[in-house]
Write a protein that binds this DNA or RNA. Structure first.
Lengths: 334, 334
DNA sequence: TTGTAGGCGTTATCAG
DNA sequence: CTGATAACGCCTACAA
């Protein structure tokens, strides 16, 4: 009896079962009939050897890796884990595994990450880009790989899109503020991030529609982080004439803003109303509880997974664009 | 001139540069000298064709995938993203990519996930197991794959370990409560999760050391979630004679406990002191701010990555066990 | 119902 | 300094 220390292979199983590798392969895939007795022997051998097909060999041969890339700015932003988990679950069900990449939203990283994933032969890419457009992404990954982008571009580009109707929520927020007599409004967001841009645009149009005047220096830049929001607010709130309400591009920023206000002795919501975006867990738990726009992360993730699976199944399908609703969750901060 | 629509391969590059695939391979790997002129031509051809090596073919041949599995219970638990990000960053630097798996802490999923990752040929596994022991994990993945486990088993098993000194923090917590005259202490955690078990053990020994008596029904079970904590607390706080302080196995549970107390009209910290574990972001932001034990997620992640890289570099290295400190962060809830 | 042979794209070995 | 050749483990015509 020969004992090899190496991993069992389809060949070793075949040998043990007294059949050809071909038959083992078919017994596994069911793509061809195998007599009950041989199948039995094969299954037995597989069990004995604890055989599991080598996925990398299979991938090379099939030209499919059963893996998809999930590329986000920063998994540490509480918005993403919910999205990632939903993607993971839907995909796992279909036998896919997720490769995850963080880009910090910087253009070069986004590009490098995409190239790396393509080189690794992922069967699809789900990405929430901050700087790259759908068109640029398609350019980088080539024509053959399914791409689902989470972004708010209107452009109907060469990728599938999952969008949230951010304008809806922002609009509700601005109107709510207005109804409370708060018309001096500022916005803090990241002019480099597309997500932020579209929220900014929504803010601007809501404000315009209401005929409100917003000072140029009430629009301030910040990364999508607490620290960014804090720093931005320190600047904004130091202005001689400062806004009485601030709409933030995400909750992390809003949290930073609330902290800055507190440190400056400015009462929230009394002297300053703050509204966030995303509705991360912390929003409802913090004090003052954050008024924010609910961003359905899990639904977005599930939709992405669904879309990528559908496109893998039908590459010729016309490009999809699904939009998920968004709504204001009124709490204490505004 | 021939135009193929397929991806460029090492062969197409070789053809364009007028050399053999072997030479291209060496030009890329640097494992063998290549004359400046040929190298130049090769690089040019690579650029022209936008060639990138096919990682799956490379993996098959090299028997290395430059990927590692990161297996956790639930990426949605705010403790994990910080860990995952640290792992991701350290690994990316070394050219590795992370496959992420969620198990919800259930034994069967832990096993299946491990098998899947092994079949995919990961070069290492970083796992925070809830039910599987280091020994069992090693059993499943076989002897050859580096495994780093984040767990508190003392057992010096066949894997590398990163531990946090949970006992330290819990001990500080129990003592702090005691010094405040709070001696009726309860604990809520998950009897199935090893992480929770060790924290429970630490709680018990701290309490014993102080000579405190804890009622059997003050130890209650809960999953590592907010809802779990809420439900557990509803039961616990309905007791005729209830504890005046509750130590929780993690922050999510603690948040649920605080909410239950609020809903029951029990003042925190006035009538009930609550301490959590992990120090997730929300802990410092919520109201009352959560007193909790700081669990250095990012440091744990970085250490895991470091360890797995070291073992890949030196498979014969003796099994490591590194312990990271933990400490009480006193805030409002206790 | 089963088997043989060739190849997926790369790298390691051996030869020149 | 450079090439031919084989092999990594699997799948799929093509044959029987």
């Amino acid at each position: 009896m020969t004992r090899t220390s190496s991993q069992p292979s389809i060949a070793s199983v075949a040998a043990a079962a007294g059949v050809s590798p071909t038959t083992v392969s078919h017994a596994l895939s069911g793509k061809r009939a195998v007599s009950p007795e041989t199948r039995e022997r094969i299954l037995q051998a597989i069990e004995d050897q604890k055989y599991r097909p080598n996925m990398v060999a299979r991938s090379l041969r099939r030209r499919k890796t059963q893996s998809i890339a999930l590329i986000v700015a920063d998994i540490t932003n509480p918005y993403y884990p919910a999205l990632a988990r939903a993607v993971h679950d839907s995909l796992a069900e279909a036998g896919y595994v997720s490769l995850i990449g963080n880009t910090d939203g910087v253009r070069e990283n986004e590009q490098t990450m995409l190239e790396e994933m393509v080189a690794r032969g992922v069967d699809g890419v789900i990405m929430r880009p901050m700087e790259l457009s759908g068109r640029e992404i398609r350019e980088i990954v080539g024509p053959a790989i399914p791409v689902v982008v989470v972004a708010d571009e209107d452009e109907t580009g060469p990728v599938d899109r999952v969008t949230t109707d951010d304008a809806q929520g922002i609009d509700e927020a601005v109107h709510a503020l207005h109804e409370d007599g708060i018309d001096d409004l500022g916005f803090v967001g990241d002019p480099l991030a597309s997500t932020s841009m579209s929220r900014h645009a929504a803010f601007t149009s809501a404000v315009d529609e209401l005929g409100l005047r917003v000072q140029a220096d009430w629009i301030v830049d910040s990364e999508f982080t607490r620290d960014g929001g804090y720093a931005a607010a320190r600047r904004l709130l130091a202005l001689e004439h400062r806004p009485r309400g601030i709409v933030c591009a995400n909750d992390l920023i809003a949290i930073g803003v609330v902290q800055a206000a507190r440190d400056l002795g400015i009462a929230v919501p009394g002297e300053l109303a703050v509204v966030g975006f995303d509705d991360i867990d912390t929003a409802s738990l913090m004090s003052p509880a954050l008024t924010t726009v609910l961003n359905p992360a899990a639904a977005v993730g599930a939709t992405c997974a669904d879309l990528i699976l559908r496109r893998i199944a039908d590459p010729a399908m016309e490009h999809q664009r699904v939009s998920l609703p968004t709504r204001l969750v009124r709490r204490e901060s505004a």
